[in-house]
Amino acid sequence: MAAPNEHPLLAPARREAVAALLIWLLTTVYCVGYCCLYGYGRDPKTLTFVLGFPDWIFWGIVVPWGVCTVISGLFAFCFMKDADLEN
């Protein structure tokens, strides 16, 4: 709960920090989870390639990387608020 006289920069900054850490957490769970499920202890004969990448790298790292770049853009230009740093 924000204090009554709290500086207006703090609430958005806290919200953005939590959102960024949540995105990191989701990314970690998905990427590590997917890669561990499909990239470790697997029969190499079942390995396929997507655009030249091993399938598990493509879906576990390359695609999320692209998605994260888009999300970062949306975060920066649509979600994050500007604030006066001087006062």
């Binding site: 920069l9 703090l10 953005e16 960024a20 850490l21 790292i61 999320p64 990387w65 994050m80």
Partner: peptide
């Protein structure tokens, strides 16, 4: 792989504050 979120966490967690 985690470099995909480093720009976001690098500036959004404590940067502004």
């Amino acid at each position: 792989g985690s470099y995909m979120v480093v720009p976001l966490t690098g500036f959004a967690v404590v940067g502004k504050r």
